[in-house]
């Protein structure tokens, strides 16, 4: 069986898609100045938060879903 078709890998890809979508396709929906977060325009705060959240998402894939060291 194709390794990418395994259920575990599909779940990994679905979780990985969340930060990627947040940094790309979600941008038109958050592209505004208000409300300001920590003094930053909303869009900039959104992007920074999602960049910081990417490693936790990938860590969950790595450790929890794929069970790697």
């Amino acid at each position: 069986m194709h390794p990418l078709m395994s259920r575990r890998t599909r779940l990994s890809l679905a979780v990985a898609a969340i930060p990627v979508i947040a940094l790309t396709f979600a941008v038109p929906f958050v592209n505004r100045d208000e409300p300001h977060v920590f003094g930053l325009p909303f869009i900039l705060a959104w992007l920074i938060v999602w960049i910081v959240l990417t490693p936790p998402f990938m860590w969950i894939i790595h450790r929890v879903i794929e069970g790697r060291r």
């Binding site: 930060p19 990627v20 790309t24 992007l47 990417t54 990938m58 894939i61 790595h62």
Partner: peptide, 12 residues
């Protein structure tokens, strides 16, 4: 700011 994280997810 954004393309690096996207690249790392793909790279993983």
């Amino acid at each position: 700011l954004c393309y690096g994280p996207v690249a790392y997810v793909i790279g993983y």
